[in-house]
Nucleic acid binder design. Structure first.
Lengths: 223, 223
DNA sequence: CGCGCTTGTGTGACTAGATCACCGATAGGC
DNA sequence: GCCTATCGGTGATCTAGTCACACAAGCGCG
């Protein structure tokens, strides 16, 4: 991305914020703070609520639910151009969430303090719409997760996951990681992958999955 | 709808709204509309987004996720004193939700049009807090549902459900309804209940479950 | 190099839950 | 009292989660 010529140009990377009135843009740029979080940073977690609302400029944040037996499910990922609104929910949470947010890659973000956030919501329709739209999007994501877990077959979900997260036909992930993504046990993933392999859809080696037959996987994922 | 003794007194039934400035109270009372919805009314559904935000004065609204195969899971219930904020998410939703809200009993509510809602959010800190707190609460509920579905055993969840929803030791519900609540199949519920009965924890008859041994159920539900 | 350690993967046996195909029981309308 | 819709019970079968353990691949180190 080219170095911004004007102060606060990062704002325009957010869908819905480009039309902000100058006054609001000023508040946003002057009272937020750009920050860089190394990969693996825990942004929020049970008992650790964040002080700031993050608007992601680059990188991705993974939000996952933790079960007491050590198992996990990935709830959603926030990527550049999105906000981590759940954060606001956490900021206000009268109750601790059993979820945590982790920087999955290095992340750069604009951090907006709670009070400034409130101020912005009060003074700008566009910002309000931005915020509520973000909430709506997250809700939708959560609903999909629920639907998946409750109603969809593992093989289908796994095929989707692989197609989703593979880059150039290759997915770097251990069976255990995929299991955590889908909220299931490692063995289940191992067996499903063995079956995919048997059908010639993928090739496996320690920590990586290579897609051999995209169409085969896709056919399963759709149906 | 019963005429309130003093204009706007219903506002005080909502935790967090009682401290509103008079000016805001006036907007709320004058620009909202009290309404009565008969039991079974569909408040929102896929393809049917509501125009109003509802603040529930009495009755309960059940919000459930619909799976394409006809199965369901109950996401949460909103009761008197709560708002149906998801509604606002739906109002703004750029995407249809596969969820629906249904009046589970007769419901009375104050309906706030979308524009007035925006106005209130803009002009009152208390109202903003009220709204975000409501969002936060719903998120928490959704997280619990995800955790339950993904990690908890059916027998435990069923025992909890029975304890939760029984009134005076009796629960009026069919096996099919309980199955829908928990996002499972009717047969599973039937078999579990048969087991509970065998252990002397409950007695069953068509459409009703009677709790005989509260402690027994509770012990399972906790563990 | 061989050694031990950690992490990732494979497998069998078993339990829980979901699905399918039924059939019998019950209540309510007529 | 009979008909019919709804409710509940049951066996067979399949998918998924759990447990216990064994084997394999990488990795540091003497």
């Amino acid at each position: 991305m080219p170095a911004p010529a004007t102060q606060g140009s990062w704002i325009d990377r957010f869908e819905g914020l480009s039309g902000l009135e100058p006054r609001i843009r000023d508040i946003l740029t002057s009272r937020s703070q750009l920050m860089r979080l190394p990969k693996g940073t825990v942004i929020f977690a049970p008992g650790k609520s964040p002080e700031n609302l993050l608007l992601l400029l680059s990188g991705t944040v993974r939000v996952q639910q933790l079960g007491e037996n050590g198992r996990e499910v990935v709830l959603y990922r926030a990527t550049a151009g999105e906000s981590c609104v759940l954060t606001t929910a956490c900021m206000l949470a009268y109750e601790d969430l059993a979820a945590e947010g982790i920087a999955e890659t290095e992340v750069t973000a604009a951090a907006i303090p709670r009070t400034v956030f409130d101020d912005l919501v009060a003074s700008s329709v566009e910002f309000r719409n931005f915020v509520f739209r973000a909430y709506s999007r997250r809700m939708t994501d959560l609903f999909r997760v629920i639907e998946d877990i409750a109603f969809r077959r593992m093989d289908i979900r796994l095929a989707q996951k692989i197609l989703d997260r593979a880059e150039a036909g290759v997915l770097k992930a251990t069976h255990a990681q995929l299991a955590a993504e889908l909220g299931t046990a490692r063995e289940v993933i191992s067996r499903q992958l063995a079956e995919f392999q048997r059908r010639g859809w993928i090739a496996q080696s320690r920590g990586t999955i290579e897609i051999l037959d995209d169409a085969g996987l896709r056919k399963l994922a759709e149906g």
